[in-house]
């Protein structure tokens, strides 16, 4: 029987959290299915290795990927089973899916498991109230929970609705999880996300070139870049932490680990430059920024080459499509 009101205590997104992996980490930790840090989770799920930019470096860069496929994979890589759905809220079938979404979300909360949804950003649903007809949301912006009326689900400024609920947990071989994540890291570095038009978006190694080009020409979104750079600076830091932790299992990872640590430092410097620049016009250190990203690109390339040497057997077994398990 459905309950009237549920609020999962202690399920909140940390302040400034803004990615799917933040939401996943909060839900899994609350559920007690993981005890690892967010950096480790970001590594194991390979989400930290996603690096995609829109050529103008708009804020949307950080969420421009196939949520259905990639967020499913993030869960699947660590043995968490999940269901999800997504669409445009302007589709005629949206009312049917809205009803389904609310039913699925409430059922998940009844089982004590939070849900990740898209409400102009990835947020966590921690509860609902049938009388009030609202969901309780933790969005990493406001403290505590805010309410989202049922009827407003999926109807944000962006045209997308999305939800994912987690269902079960299968214990996988830890080493196999780490190994797969490193293969996926190489895949992400080398592969363009098929969903994105190549003229407007760049992924992996090509994303560095797109960024450098944008800074050279000055053709970029000055507000967007202030979200994009800190976002990926966090991701690179997660990678560095993650790969360093894996040295325990593969001492040969030392080289890649050091390179990723240096990559993360370059990004951190860039992020700091952007947060200290007060106005849009005051972009004096643009050459410094270009230098930082050029250096970061070389370092990350070397790190990936190092991973490739380590993972060569798996890669060779997968022939032309190394991402395909």
């Amino acid at each position: 029987m459905a309950l009237q009101k549920v609020l999962l205590e202690n399920l909140t997104l940390p302040q400034h959290a803004n990615s799917y992996i933040d939401a996943l980490h909060a839900i899994l930790t609350h559920q007690g299915w993981i005890t690892c840090s967010k950096s480790m989770l970001a590594g194991m799920t390979a989400t930290a290795f996603r690096f995609t930019v829109d050529c103008r470096l708009t804020a949307e860069s950080t969420s421009a990927y196939n949520w259905i496929a990639e967020n499913f994979l993030a869960a699947d890589f660590i043995g968490v089973t999940a269901s999800s759905a997504a669409g445009f809220h302007f589709e005629p079938t949206f009312p049917l899916y809205l009803k389904q979404a609310l039913s699925d979300i409430r059922k998940s909360l009844d089982r004590g498991i939070g849900c990740a949804i898209w409400q102009d950003r990835f947020v966590v649903v921690a509860g609902y109230d049938e009388d009030q007809q609202v969901l309780y949301i933790s969005d990493g912006q406001a403290e505590g929970y805010r309410t989202l009326p049922y009827a407003q689900f999926g109807k944000g400024d962006s045209p997308y609705w999305y939800y994912q609920f987690l269902e079960g947990h299968i214990v996988l071989d830890e080493i196999a999880v780490y190994q797969e994540s490193l293969v996926q890291a190489i895949f992400k570095w080398e592969t363009h996300e098929l969903m994105l038009p190549e003229a407007e978006y760049a992924c992996g190694e090509a994303a560095y070139d797109a960024m450098i080009e944008a800074f050279r020409t000055g053709n970029y979104d000055p507000l967007g870049v202030r979200e994009v750079i800190p976002y990926y600076a966090t991701a690179k830091k997660d990678i560095a932490t993650y790969v360093a932790a894996l040295e325990r299992y593969w001492p040969e990872l030392r080289d890649a680990s050091e390179k990723y640590r240096d990559v993360a430092q370059q990004w951190e410097k860039a992020a700091r430059l952007f947060t200290t620049i007060e106005t849009v016009d005051n972009l004096a250190p643009i050459n410094t920024i270009i230098d930082l990203f050029e250096a970061a690109k070389v370092l990350e390339e070397e790190a990936v080459l190092s991973l490739k040497r380590l993972m060569r057997e798996t890669i060779n077994n997968r022939f032309h499509d190394i991402g395909l398990r």
């Binding site: 969420s63 421009a64 990927y65 196939n66 949520w67 259905i68 496929a69 990639e70 499913f72 994979l73 699947d76 997504a86 669409g87 445009f88 302007f90 589709e91 898209w118 045209p159 997308y160 999305y162 098929l194 969903m195 994105l196 038009p197 499509d321 991402g323 395909l324 398990r325």
Partner: peptide, 16 residues
């Protein structure tokens, strides 16, 4: 054609 002039967040490929 809003459906084709708005970039989706799904489709094009399935989970690997």
């Amino acid at each position: 054609d809003r459906k084709r002039t708005t970039l989706p967040r799904w489709g094009a490929h399935s989970p690997r």
